[in-house]
Simulated assay, not measured.
Amino acid sequence: MNTKAATPTQTGALVGLARVSTDDQDLQLQLDALTAAGCIRIFDEKVSTRKKDRPGLAAALDYLRPGDTLVVWKLDRLGRSTKDVLIIAEDLHDQGIGLKILTGRLAGNYSPTGEGKFFFTMMAAFAELERDIIRERTIAGVQAARDRGQRLGRPPAMTPEQVEHARTLLTNPKNTVSSIARLLNVSRATIYKYVPELTQAPAAAAEELTA
């Protein structure tokens, strides 16, 4: 569906807002897109929208002036819930500031008034609904896998066969934990984890443990 929202008259500057939820995520994709869109200033933040304190958004709102347009890469960079997004959008409108979304189904310019407000509300609601559906499908998929007896999460570092092989090799005093770890392509720590009796072994394996 390609629904056009009312487009505000832009008389001022484009100001960008980039956000990721954790320090492990990279802002560069958003920064590049916002720069290419013509933003003269970009504010960024690394914080979950579930937290009330959003310094990047607060700084952007303080910087924006009537006639300016706030630009985000995608709607979920502005807020995670329909309520939050609409509160921010209403605040922008009250100040005479437009909103532009660069990517996703909701890409375009929005003015949260009249027809534009109606479509913006519906689209924000659809975006939240889509997140909920994805989350429910993920939960259902995990439960179905458990019901089938599938092991979830990371696979074990050593299979039962490798553990047994390691124990057999360790019966030979010429074999060390390091040499067996190299043979099985695992770390010494992994050997000790899966063969815990080594902590009491008095032979070469024990010597390596205390080395």
Rank of each mutant, 00 (worst) to 15 (best):
K51E: 14
D24L: 10
F126W: 13
K100W: 10
Q30Y: 07
P196G: 08
T82H: 09
R137D: 07
L14E: 00
V72T: 07
L183K: 10
E208C: 03
R19A: 05
A89K: 02
H93R: 15
I191D: 00
Q30S: 07
R41I: 10
T103M: 04
I97W: 00
A124T: 11
R41W: 05
F119S: 08
Q28S: 13
V85D: 00
R50C: 10
S48K: 12
R154K: 14
S178R: 05
R188D: 00
M158S: 03
A140D: 14
P196N: 11
L198C: 03
S21Q: 07
G38E: 02
G153C: 05
L61N: 02
L129I: 13
Y110G: 00
A211Q: 14
S111R: 12
T190D: 01
E136Q: 15
K100T: 09
A157W: 02
D76L: 06
T176A: 03
T69C: 10
H165V: 12
I87V: 12
E164I: 11
L34I: 06
T7G: 04
P66L: 06
L78K: 04
L92D: 01
R146I: 13
L183I: 01
D32Q: 12
L152N: 07
N172F: 10
Q95Y: 10
D62N: 12
R65D: 04
F43V: 03
M122A: 15
A140W: 06
S178T: 13
Q150L: 14
E164F: 04
D26M: 09
L75A: 05
R77H: 09
R188Q: 06
T11I: 14
L198G: 02
T138S: 14
I101C: 02
Y63P: 02
Q10S: 09
E161V: 15
G38C: 02
G38Q: 06
G116M: 09
K100C: 10
I87C: 01
Q150P: 00
H165G: 03
L61H: 08
